[in-house]
Design a binder for these strands. Structure first.
Length: 383
DNA sequence: CTAGGGTTAG
């Protein structure tokens, strides 16, 4: 273990490559009906694309006769992915659902509205929403909120603004905290951060207290636009309003401190989490490690990694990327290799380029070992 | 998976 000869290094490299090629992607197919749906495109792959689509649509309609099939959200999501951007095919199979009794169940319709959003079909989402009374389906603040969310997924932020302003009055629906949070999210995504913050006051005027989701949504937006001092103010406001911070709130806060290299405050915050029984996740440990990696402080970065493992938080791809690169920088190839092996054992994907650095480093190292073994004469000849 | 927030590195 003490001195690694070149031959043992090469054995390790071979092991590394052998495992590296075993990366597989597993398709999520827990439902047998979904599997058959996916399989249905294969036999028809020689057909023109138009007929392939028709096969999927027909297959889906046929499967829809089973209540069991209709109860699985995943089937509808799979259909959307299979049909891609063919909106008329998606509309066709969703319209087909109107003949089944579930269409009078608000939660069933909610799924379809959300899926329309995922497929970026906000107009169809709106149409289905408007049809709810005719379909003998209850229309509450739940479906209103989902319609807003569908428009966000379709990236129609102006539509969210219009709906939020006009619909509640039209339908006598009273917006709740989720409605406001969704509205704020849309404003953040549209870049109207100042307006989004002002909606908090509007909420309170309506007697709705901003909650941790409100603060986390705004905090995320401030983070993304690098407005760290505003994020700081928001954190203070959150304490002032006695909104209890959760793991997400602490994570955003930690990110701000690390971005500004406030080492002591970051450590303090991390300890505060422990006192409040909030268990730091891999992200929190990654932030601490990143802080020291940026500082080029190998000892502390390694110490936080050890702490992460001791506390049973599994290192993820980000942990490995950061530490393997840093270990290579520090010429600590044994540790780099150890991390590579650990990543592969845990089936965590590390970029080829990062792996390559380790392999190159080891190859270089073993060449030097060989040259040492060959003696100083050889070195003199080449140098 | 019967509505809303969840970040890093490359």
């Amino acid at each position: 273990m003490s001195s690694s000869s070149s031959s043992s290094l090469y054995r390790r490299l071979h092991g590394l490559f052998a495992q590296n090629h075993k990366v597989t992607v597993k398709l999520k197919t827990d439902n047998p009906k979904t599997t058959s749906l996916i399989k249905s495109i294969k036999p028809t792959s020689k057909l023109p694309p138009k007929q392939q689509l028709q096969t999927i649509v027909d297959n889906f309609k046929k499967s829809s006769e089973s209540p069991e099939f209709r109860s699985h959200y995943g089937n509808y999501l799979t259909a959307i992915h299979l049909l891609g951007n063919n909106s008329s095919a998606i509309e066709d199979i969703f319209d087909h659902q109107k003949q089944y009794p579930e269409i009078s169940n608000e939660f069933f319709v909610i799924r379809l509205i959300l899926l329309y959003g995922t497929a970026k079909m906000h107009e169809q989402a709106r149409k289905l929403f408007d049809e709810m009374p005719n379909l003998k389906c209850q229309q509450t603040v739940f479906s209103f909120n989902v319609l807003l969310e569908a428009c966000i997924r379709a990236e129609k932020y102006d539509t969210v603004r219009e709906l939020f302003r006009d619909l509640p009055e039209e339908l006598s629906v009273v917006p709740d905290v989720v409605s406001y949070n969704t509205f704020i999210k849309a404003l953040c995504k549209a870049g109207s951060l100042d307006y989004a913050v002002s909606v908090m006051d509007e909420m309170e005027n309506q007697g709705i207290k901003p909650d941790k989701v409100t603060f986390n949504t705004l905090s995320k937006a401030y983070n993304e636009s690098k407005k760290f001092s505003e994020a700081e103010d928001l954190w203070l406001l959150m304490q002032k309003k006695n909104v209890v911070a959760d793991l997400g709130s602490y994570s955003f806060r930690l990110r701000v401190l690390v971005a500004n290299n406030k080492v002591n405050e970051a450590i303090e915050l991390f300890e505060e989490m422990g006192k409040k029984d909030i268990i730091p996740n891999a992200f929190c440990y990654n932030m601490m490690i990143k802080m020291y990696v940026d500082d080029r402080n190998w000892e502390e970065a390694k110490r936080w990694y050890d702490k992460m493992v001791e506390n049973g938080r599994y290192p993820d791809n980000v942990t490995f990327e950061m530490l393997i690169s840093f270990a290579c920088d520090k010429d600590n190839l044994d540790f780099a290799l150890e991390l590579c092996k650990k990543a592969m054992d845990s089936k965590i994907h590390v970029h080829d380029a990062t792996m390559q650095r380790v392999v190159n480093g080891l190859a270089e190292h073993s060449k030097l070992e060989e040259e040492k073994e060959l003696g100083p004469n050889h070195l003199r000849d080449t140098g």
